[in-house]
Nucleic acid binder design. Structure first.
Lengths: 330, 330
DNA sequence: ACCTGTTGTGGGAGCGCTCCCAAACTGCTT
DNA sequence: AAGCAGTTTGGGAGCGCTCCCACAACAGGT
């Protein structure tokens, strides 16, 4: 049986309260007493019972990470792994536990309500990728502190994101500068908000340059497969360059291009999005927009902890600047 | 303020105990009473407080997943993402929460002790990849139910794993059958148990065939970079085929081979290990050993739940058969 | 000598549940 | 009419902590 606070108190000859103060880095404890108690704690390897603490204090020292992409196909995308890594690393550093919820989007509200009512977690980082995801409304209505990651819908909401519209602009401007005019896109899954944003940036720049061609739009799904089929559709239309809305689709696009006996970038130039680890390993190495998923995960946690410390803080959007990583595909 | 059991009891005109019974699918409740209470619960959207439940029942409905690979470099490997996915999916299906710990191996015992003393989790799935990881001893000494994933060190321990030795044999035998004789290996990180096992299987088969050549062993690290440098070392020794101890290194090896102006499999054949999603997308598509990480994650959770249901069950090792996926690289 | 403030400590109450045992009610037998 | 088994319900105790208030001890100022 694990020891309790009371046990430690008895052993070290003080009261429950004093031990509690020591454990919680309490303020008003005689240094000698503190030392004595700490020694006992060390010696007996006492660990406070988290459940009791939660119940009594209404605080769990646990954060949640909610990824509605589900355990489904979308999880192939290294994007989510990197986000998880970042969030987990930050939690671990801050001595918070991390509860992970990979849900289907439909089950999400249920999960959320459970989390909130429960003080299972003190706050939650939510990956926001689905356009019109009702989760945002749900979160606002609830009173569980949260930070969105991936998209910042509204300045009144805490979020960490890349400016996807601007990022797409950067990519397309670069292609224009390199002299490409017939520029196509393999779009992301249409219900994904990043996909919509990237398409918007893409369209905008090309229209301004007067070279927008709607026949060079191909639907995609953010997966390798969609990149492949998107590019197959695009190739007969002879694009000089193609912007893939994420790297995974760029991989598929490469496959289609190379199967057609064409070469990158001589016949078709490519720009991707995300800069997943694989991107640098492709042939030729992929020029892409870097999205610092790992860092975003960390930032989201830091922000969340700030909010927990001082709940009255005004909301803040942390928008990271897009960065173009030029390699050899464009 | 969220409602409590007591509130529901008052509203529906019964006692705390009765509501508790209803909530927990209790046995002895009058069907009409049950209906009435359920209706109130639904109407007021009552959610039991998990912390209180944990404290009172000593059960948390939460499983832990411990990955000592850390938030470090090793996490580049999709292996871990897939395991996480599998575990998360199974937990979600069984209505268990999942607490994720990506720790440095050194911090791991501390985490573990915290988990155990705490009833933070009912049980834990532990990724076992580091040879001589003291965690196994630690787990045995403790009384937190656990299942290892990735390697099964001992029939007395619950584990889900692939037989890595046999898997390597399968790969090498295949290469021999195809007529290759100068067969090299890019080994995994030397402190990883899978790396050792795979090397063993590799060596064994070649020695039996009388074609083992110790100059065709190259050190690796399970990362892309190590695959690249390993292959650079190997190439001057003119191997006809190379077995990479995981797919990520095969990617690096491809890069080295192609940079050298050689072709796969004509000049050098390649076999990988894991069958990560990327494997099928390489040029040429990689022949590899499939390791069903996602399934393994699920199986580990199922097994853990079995143990929780009946703690006196004899331990069981679930060993999955290796499967060679023949594509075009060998 | 008194009061005042400061520092350190102790213990009661309570967080929201589960578990257990006892009480109340039912329907049936003798 | 009393007795009994079986079913259904109620309430006390307690899980291990935190929070709050009370109190003890001692300093310094009047």
């Amino acid at each position: 049986m694990p020891l309790t606070l009371e046990d430690i108190a008895r052993i070290s000859g003080v009261s429950r309260s004093t031990v509690s103060r020591v454990v919680n880095g309490g303020d008003k404890v005689n240094p000698q007493t503190r030392e004595r108690v700490l020694e006992v704690i060390r010696q007996w390897n006492y660990q406070p019972n988290a459940a009791a603490r939660r119940l009594a204090a209404g605080r769990s020292d646990t954060l949640g990470l909610l990824i509605p992409a589900g355990a489904g196909a979308a999880f192939e995308d290294p994007y989510f792994s990197q986000v998880i890594r970042g969030v987990a690393a930050a939690c671990s550093r801050r001595d918070y536990a991390l509860t992970l919820w990979l849900t289907d989007p439909e089950r999400e509200p249920r999960v959320l309500r459970r989390l909130a009512a429960n003080n299972l977690v003190d706050g939650v980082v939510v990956s926001y990728t689905l356009a019109d995801d009702p989760i945002v409304g749900e979160l606002r209505r609830g009173n569980l502190p949260f930070v969105l990651i991936g998209h910042a819908p509204d300045p009144a909401i805490n979020a960490v994101a890349l400016d996807n519209v601007e990022a797409a602009r950067v990519a397309v401007r670069y292609l224009l500068e390199r002299g490409y005019r017939r520029i196509g896109i393999i779009m992301g899954a249409p219900n994904q908000i990043d996909a919509q944003d990237r398409l918007r940036g893409f369209t905008e720049v090309l229209e301004q340059a007067g070279v927008f061609d709607p026949t060079l739009l191909a639907e995609g799904d953010f997966l390798e497969e969609g990149g492949y089929s998107g590019m197959r559709l695009l190739l007969p239309r002879r694009p000089e360059a193609v912007f893939a809305a994420n790297d995974l689709m760029a991989v598929g696009a490469y496959r289609a291009i190379q199967e057609a006996g064409l070469s990158i970038p001589a016949d078709v130039a490519m720009v991707g999005f995300d800069d997943v680890p694989m991107a640098a390993q492709l042939h030729p190495p992929l020029t892409t927009i870097r999205q610092p998923m790992y860092t975003m995960g960390q930032l989201a946690v830091e922000r969340l902890l700030e909010i927990l410390r001082d709940p009255r803080q005004p909301p803040r959007q942390i928008l990271l600047p897009p960065e173009l990583v030029v390699r050899q595909s464009a």
